[in-house]
Design a protein around this nucleic acid. Structure first.
Lengths: 148, 148
DNA sequence: GTTAGTGCAAAATCTTTGCATATTT
DNA sequence: AAATATGCAAAGATTTTGCACTAAC
């Protein structure tokens, strides 16, 4: 359980207690390579801890966000938030509006832009959201058929 | 009422009926220079049409979105959607997490990027969301005080 | 006259919160 | 022991929907 020891240290650095629930949620987020909804996280966590509640998921995620461990973003087309770890060297996503498939679009090109914006606006910039949406090759055809 | 005649034509082009409610909502969106929440739109529209219902606001906005007349975006930190007209030559926003103030960040630099992405991914790209968030000069200081 | 849109109230969804209990430090 | 975190159930908030009625074409 080497990873738990690391997490313990990690949580300590962020000034929050090291609980079983936070560990599981953190591991789920680490292993995910796309953003997840609270519900998806809930289901994954439940496999390990049957008795966890959805409100704990939300509370832990909000704690992670306030400590800048995680970030929240919103996929277009419905109103549910998605969560992922706040990776410094992060990616962005191209989201299919047909099937919700997400595709990484490579290294984030916005760091430099943010720096120049901080200078011109005097804002203290914390982060950004950038998502591109459309239809994937498979859904493109379906879309075309239903539209005509 | 020259503008109503224009709107009538505009709605016809998009294959939707020209109703009083749609006209008012469209005018509200035209006059807004920042994205608005459904509730904000509701309140503005109510000044002109006291009997409009919030569900009509949502239905009209969803119609506008499906016809690509408007776009929906989500400001970080809460879960309410915001709406604005789908301007081809659009802007993006820098949002203050302290006071929700928004600042335009100039002409959108992402059109070219989308084109190259369409080629590499074979997606049919419909649009994107891009928001940068942080703390404005005024809230920066407040933030610093409450954190220590 | 037909089709599409609206208002209302009710439902559905997503998220937060109060409170008692449990866990962490 | 004190401070935080959790589970549960209940409440809040936002958005959608069924249905009868109305307006637009």
């Amino acid at each position: 359980m080497e990873e738990l020891k690391d997490n313990k240290e990690f949580f300590k650095e962020h000034g929050i207690k090291n609980t079983k629930q936070r560990n599981i949620i953190f591991e789920v987020l680490k292993q995910a390579n796309t953003p997840l909804t609270a519900e998806q996280i809930f289901l994954k966590v439940k496999k390990v801890d049957k008795s966890i509640s959805l409100s704990t998921i939300y509370r832990v995620l909000n704690t992670f966000i306030s400590k800048e461990i995680a970030v929240k973003l919103t996929i277009v087309e419905d109103n549910t938030s998605m969560f992922e770890l706040n990776r410094i060297d992060h990616e962005h996503y191209l989201v299919c509006m047909g099937c919700n498939k997400t595709v990484d679009i490579g290294h984030c090109p916005l760091g430099v832009y943010e720096n120049s914006l901080e200078e011109t606006t005097n804002f203290d910039i914390v982060g950004h959201k950038f998502e591109i949406y459309g239809y994937c090759p498979e859904c493109k055809n379906k879309e075309r058929l239903t539209k005509n």
